[in-house]
Design a protein around this nucleic acid. Structure first.
Lengths: 228, 228
DNA sequence: TCGAAAACGATAATCCGATTCTCACTTGTC
DNA sequence: GACAAGTGAGAATCGGATTATCGTTTTCGA
């Protein structure tokens, strides 16, 4: 009955795509509304149960109507995706600042890994207060990775390319060994960090010894390996 | 309205628990039926879309009735969990055989990691034909880890303790460095392997160079690190 | 072997949340 | 002032899990 739904939409960000569904004159209103949805969803995702939220909750909290929601987003999934892209960009920007102070490529790599690790931790001290990788994101990230690899790949790109060039720089400085495939290594490292929280669940060990920073521990494993 | 649902059930396996819901005399029938459900679900999970399957499909394929299904399982979730526990046990047993041929602790560790890696790969050559870690399991595994850490932990135990003692043995042989927390390291390694498939999605790199075994590559990273 | 209790099969009903549809009301435009 | 697109409120639909109902069959002790 409804033959629309372009499904094209190439290298454009989701939020832009959602906005573009509405013509130009009304752009301002549209931006505002889309942002209202995004904000509401973000709050819901961070606060409360942190778990799943319903579309109803989003529209209630945003003061918009269900109608508009489906006007701007193809569905809940697109909303989540937009949120996720936003967060990745934000985290990438944050990390960019974090590593700016470091002098060597090695230090920047180190810093990147440890800081990103902390961003991905469920709930420590709410570092950047808002817009951190909330715990829920790890969960959504997983779903995204399995069900929509293409979108996932695009969403992760800012982080992936950033880490990739850090690796390349470190290799240039001979701070890490040569012969590594930086692109794939970056993927491996990002996943290792992002899903590291599961490690303790898997092993059944709940708490860390108070004297080790789990982020540094993972860095140690990544840089030195477990061999002698 | 329904005040039952014990929610107790301590260190017993799910399948046993499901069976125990029926008295002893009928045990045989019960075992048969539970197994019928499990088999049907396993087929569905491996074959077809490999994706989600519906409870309806399970009862159709198993020739049982919806009624019995909910008599033996508290819900779909418990079925999945039983399946998952089974698979972990099977994989652990398989790995146990695989490493039996190796002579040193180092070789056993190596073998374990590489073989487990292959078990977790989406769909290569269907190694053990049936009862491999189907791709869907990675997905369910994730859900399990986030939503039911306790059950997840228990389900993973066979693999976790196995790897933990391999690590301990390797440390005894001075094949890996000392001072590592074997329990937590085991968790980290298992998660790194299990979810490694995501690494390529994250990095956006689809194919491996034909001349490197991704399992060996990960082993190399784990044992040597990326440092010089 | 009889009869009550328990288990069972078939199927309808319910629930929940996402998505779609309907209709009446604005609003901006000419 | 009329028309078209945009919008809000809410009902309707849909998929899939879970529950409930109701006869029928099986089990099992006496």
């Amino acid at each position: 009955m409804s033959p629309e739904k372009p499904a094209k939409r190439s290298a454009v960000s989701r939020r832009e795509a959602a906005v573009a569904r509405v013509l130009d004159p009304a752009r301002e209103r549209a931006e505002t509304r889309v942002q209202a949805f995004l904000d509401a969803a973000m709050e819901l995702m961070n606060s409360s149960s942190g778990q799943e939220f319903t579309v109803q909750e989003v529209i209630e909290r945003s003061g918009q109507s269900l109608r508009s929601f489906y006007q701007y987003f193809d569905g809940k999934y697109e909303l989540l995706l937009a949120l996720f892209e936003d967060s990745v960009r934000t985290v990438a920007a944050q990390l960019n600042e974090d590593i700016a102070g470091e002098t060597t490529a090695y230090d920047r790599l180190h810093r990147f890994i440890v800081e990103y690790f902390h961003q991905c931790q469920p709930a420590l001290k709410a570092r950047t207060s808002k817009r951190g990788f909330a715990p829920a994101f790890a969960s959504f990230s997983h779903q995204l990775l399995t069900e929509h690899p293409v979108e996932a790949s695009r969403a992760f790109q800012p982080l992936a390319t950033m880490l990739e060039s850090l690796l390349a720089a470190a290799a240039d400085e001979a701070a890490i060994r040569s012969g590594l495939d930086h692109a794939r290594l970056a993927g491996t490292i990002l996943q290792a960090i992002m899903f590291n929280a599961f490690a303790s669940t898997i092993s059944g060990v709940s708490a860390h010894p108070a004297d080790v920073d789990p982020g540094e521990e993972l860095w140690d494993l990544l840089i030195n390996g477990m061999g002698k």
